[in-house]
Design a protein around this nucleic acid. Structure first.
Lengths: 185, 185
DNA sequence: GTCTATAGAGTGATAGAC
DNA sequence: GTCTATCACTCTATAGAC
């Protein structure tokens, strides 16, 4: 009976979707078992720390994805093309605003305090990486940091608006504006 | 003992704070009674529709505040000064990013679907009002709408970042940049 | 037998509604 | 306060892999 399906990392994306849909508080174990098709036994076998450990695993998984797909390219590749590539990744990853940023969502209520290190680290790393690219592209340090902050924040805002208005065009329009801002104005 | 304190509208701000802190799912009736110092009896007397009606009341209260303090001035007063005044109100209302936007938070998970009308209406009204002011200030229709969308979204993003990084300076810096954008560039 | 993965009944606590 | 449903979580039982 055992050994058939899962390893721990196989269920992490499914876990992420549940947390995204319902939030941390709204993601009950019942909902999680329904979505992951894993019994409580398996779930607590993989994540002895319960929901907190599940959320931690999801945040780590998100961080890893951004690290390889976005942050490292921003730090190491030619800046103009890495920035363009970042916006393409963002458009795709967030499904034009139909998929939320779990890290941003966790930041909104007291869930933040449970995962403050992962939440803060994710955004700081993003701002630093983008700031590095903008700086290499010719901006002053201070300008690069300000624009990076505005852009990373702007992406979060675009997600909020797209979902609130149920209109992905808003997301795409805002992202285009932010991309323009990175080309200097 | 009864009759002493409350009317329904007196408890709405306290309700708002509970929803802000814990989110809709995390705001349990126990937490609500603790914060409002109202028994369950009074609570269900004022809000027979339960938690949904409580949240609806909070959203209506928020909408009313923005309507008088922000949206109507944007539509009717001299645009440059109404826009400056909007940014001042925003800085104050959101406590430099330490207080979240409940409407934006509700937009993030499936809570949105319960309150989609209030959530969508709030942001659309804000964008329309700001767009009107920007247009009167000299922007083309299309430019005004784009900038209004970026600014309203940018404010939401600023809240997310300020909380995620636990740093209100980020909020203030972003707001300053958005205000600059409204003066044309 | 020992190990890991699994299923799910059962725990007390707490949920929202009234 | 009282109701039922559901919460997060524990535990026992058992499957197959070695």
């Amino acid at each position: 009976m055992a050994r058939l399906i899962a390893e721990r990392h196989d269920v992490v994306p499914a876990l992420g979707e549940v947390f995204r849909r319902f939030g941390f508080e709204g993601a009950s174990i019942a909902r999680i078992t329904a979505h992951t098709k894993l019994g409580k036994g398996s779930l607590y076998h993989f994540f002895p720390g319960g929901k907190d450990e599940m959320a931690e695993a999801v945040l780590g998984h998100i961080r890893d994805w951004f690290e390889t797909e976005v942050f490292i390219p921003l730090m190491q590749e030619p800046p103009a093309q890495a920035i363009e590539s970042m916006f393409a990744s963002v458009e795709q990853y967030f499904h034009s605003g139909r998929r939320i940023c779990l890290v941003g969502a966790f930041a909104m209520d007291e869930t933040r305090d449970r995962f403050s290190k992962a939440v803060g680290g994710y955004f700081q790393r993003w701002i630093d990486a983008l700031g590095s690219a903008l700086s290499r592209a010719g901006m002053t340090e201070i300008e690069a940091e300000n624009v990076a902050t505005e852009v990373v924040g702007g992406i979060q805002g675009a997600i909020v608006l797209a979902r609130a208005l149920d209109d992905d065009q808003r997301f795409t329009v805002i992202i285009k504006g932010l991309a323009q801002r990175c080309r200097m104005d």
